[in-house]
């Protein structure tokens, strides 16, 4: 179970990494924490002819809050982010969701940047970042651009990052005070990718739900925010019947497929259950915070 032959380059700067990618063309891959790329190479599922290792770029391992924005360097590890005070204060939903992500040893090496560039549709963080209205800073030879999470994730294993570009930073606006949020997933084992996961954020003003963000993984081929469910809830009062109807709407708008772990019928059951649970939990949280 060894990788196919490949060249290896250890980048000493972002510029060096981008220049090397540019010179080499399509067959090059960036290596960050290696928790997806290395197993894929060992299994022959990824066969890059050049690996550009950016793991040494410790300048990009920061997690900090600046002007109401949580800024995460693309090489910050999951555990660094999960344990950072900045995350807990600015984006507590991120920390809550991290409890469902992988195992300690994987989080210790894996990076959020690598994770979202890999864009596995079963992965939790693409959903969480989408719901948190994150944006991604992408650097290329001609400079930097900033892409909203909603546009960043194009398809399964496909993002806005071009072959000669590199993600350098993830920016997440701080969550509003009093906001309710929840993330839940069903996986066979703790730490596995979810069969279905659901996330939700909302605030309640004058008895009405507002700024509703809701989305799922495992409900179709892609991670997605379900605007139709959000629209149903936006401006409405949070009664149980409505939440159940919203969960039902999520089911109607899901199109999961069968795989070896779960058939589509099971996924639809989970969409219903997980949706109802996160919506209820988010509403409960706002109530606890005295927003009602």
């Amino acid at each position: 179970m060894k990788p196919w032959p490949f060249e290896y380059h250890r980048a000493n700067s972002i510029e060096d990494a981008i220049a090397t990618l540019g010179r080499h063309g399509e067959g090059a891959r960036l290596l960050a924490g290696g928790q997806s790329l290395i197993p894929m190479m060992n299994l022959g599922l990824a066969t890059p002819d050049l690996v550009v290792d950016v793991g040494n770029l410790s300048d990009l391992a920061y997690v900090l809050v600046e002007d109401g924005v949580l800024r995460i360097g693309a090489l910050a590890t999951h555990n660094t982010i999960m344990e950072a005070d900045a995350s807990a204060s600015a984006c507590p939903m991120l920390v809550v969701a991290y409890h469902s992500v992988a195992h300690h040893t994987i989080r210790n090496r894996g990076t959020l940047g690598g994770n979202i560039c890999h864009a596995d549709p079963a992965s939790e963080m693409p959903l969480v970042l989408t719901l948190l209205d994150a944006s991604m800073v992408i650097r290329g030879a001609r400079g930097e651009r900033v892409v909203a999470a909603g546009n960043f994730f194009i398809d399964a294993f496909e993002t806005e990052v071009e072959p000669a570009e590199m993600l350098t930073e993830i920016r997440i606006p701080a969550q509003a005070a009093g906001e309710g949020y929840a993330f839940e997933e069903m996986s066979q084992r703790k730490g596995d990718f979810a069969i279905v996961s659901a996330g939700c954020r909302l605030s309640i003003r004058k008895g009405q739900m507002t700024n509703v963000r809701f989305g799922l993984t495992g409900a179709g081929a892609q991670t997605r925010r379900m605007s139709v469910v959000e629209a149903k809830l936006e401006g409405a009062g949070p009664d149980d019947r409505l939440l159940a109807e919203a969960a039902e709407l999520a089911v109607v708008n899901s199109d999961p497929s069968d795989d070896i772990h779960a058939d589509a019928a099971y996924r639809l059951d989970l969409v219903r259950t997980m949706s109802r649970r996160v919506l209820a939990a988010a509403v409960r949280m706002t109530a606890k915070q005295g927003a009602l």
């Binding site: 069903m186 066979q188 069969i195 772990h261 779960a262 058939d263 019928a265 099971y266 059951d269």
Partner: peptide, 8 residues
Amino acid sequence: LTPAKLRG
């Protein structure tokens, strides 16, 4: 009896 089978 996996979760999916059991739920089924």
